[in-house]
Write a protein that binds this DNA or RNA. Structure first.
Lengths: 189, 189
DNA sequence: GATACTAACTAACGTTTGTTATTATATTTG
DNA sequence: CAAATATAATAACAAACGTTAGTTAGTATC
């Protein structure tokens, strides 16, 4: 059973998604939930409160997922596969929330913005260390590690949008394709 | 020499970038240019006018660039390389504009929104046909063409952000790395 | 030197914004 | 059943929004 607060956050995300954080009004959100704007404040502290709840919930799940993979003693190849699958799994699980997490975090303010950025930075740093190690061990191709990090994360982002419209049954197909592309590239050498 | 209109559009883009389209006010833009909000209307029809100018300018350059490559009689491999370089070149050329183009187009309205979406769709369709052909010819690895399309385009997007902070001299290094990653993958098989 | 044009200003418009205070109505608890 | 709590609605707030109107100063044209 989902609380009213959950429903509000869910509807808010759909509207943030369509109109952007600033373009979405509390009245829009209230209408989607079926109440007046002022009544939202019985369940939610502020508009920022909604955004912040989503951003940090997702960030935390990413962190936990990555840590579990990197702390294991699997091979570089298997870790890479698991990280790809983590991103796809979270995209399918959170749908709309992922896009808000991805695009609207910049509307966080003050300590929350600082805190969010540093979580993000930490995530990238861990992944960068993994990539750098992989290259040193000659398991990964020798390109500038930062570029590989960015291309990797960037290339995975479309799944956040994909699972808004597609069912979870696509997860294995998407996973397999992504793993093939990342491991072997696009070109048939 | 850049006209006042160009200056307004340039500053507006920086603010769209930082605050999003809805979060950016005409007063913000005016302040960045050094005038009052109402004076902007001597050079610009509306806030939407600014957004639309950017979105369609960039869309047109993408289209022209892609057509030239696909209409040539180069090999699949060489075409792929050229498309990668096209995206990197445009990212370095347009900096802030690219991000607005990427994220804020959804705030276009009516016919402009419809028109923009169909340009975007056409671009993806051309690229999809190219990929499908490449797979048929066994030049590209056999994965679902749509997934390859999305991963390809998505993976290139980070360069839009990268060249906001980095100089154009990085273009060759970034290009080489991207080509290696797309052609050979990340893993050192 | 009068005329027209450009581009800036101040002031204001009607709306919409996030949010609060107050009040009414359910729902839960003692 | 009564008291207390949670949740809704109405009304209103000051601030900010995109945009228009009216005006003024500077520049170019004849």
């Amino acid at each position: 059973m989902s609380t009213k607060r959950d429903q509000i956050i869910e509807q808010a995300n759909k509207i943030f998604l369509a109109k952007g954080y600033s373009g979405a009004s509390m009245r829009d959100i209230a209408a989607a939930v079926g109440m007046e704007a002022s009544s939202l404040y019985n369940h939610v502290e502020s508009k920022h409160d909604i955004l912040q709840t989503v951003c940090f919930e997702i960030a935390q799940e990413y962190q936990a997922g990555l840590d579990e993979i990197l702390d294991s003693d699997l091979s570089v190849k298997k870790k890479l596969k698991n990280i790809i699958q983590l991103h796809i799994f979270l995209a399918a699980k959170h749908k709309d929330k992922m896009v808000v997490f991805d695009l609207e975090w910049k509307h966080l303010e003050n300590e929350q913005l600082v805190s969010f950025k540093s979580l993000r930075k930490a995530y990238e740093q861990k992944l960068l260390a993994f990539i750098t190690y992989g290259i040193e061990q000659k398991k990964l191709n020798p390109v500038e590690p930062k570029y590989m990090l960015y291309t990797f994360l960037s290339g995975l982002k479309w799944v956040n949008y994909y699972f808004q419209q597609h069912k979870e049954k696509d997860i294995p197909t998407v996973s397999d394709s992504m793993i093939t592309m990342y491991l072997k590239g696009f070109y048939n050498n």
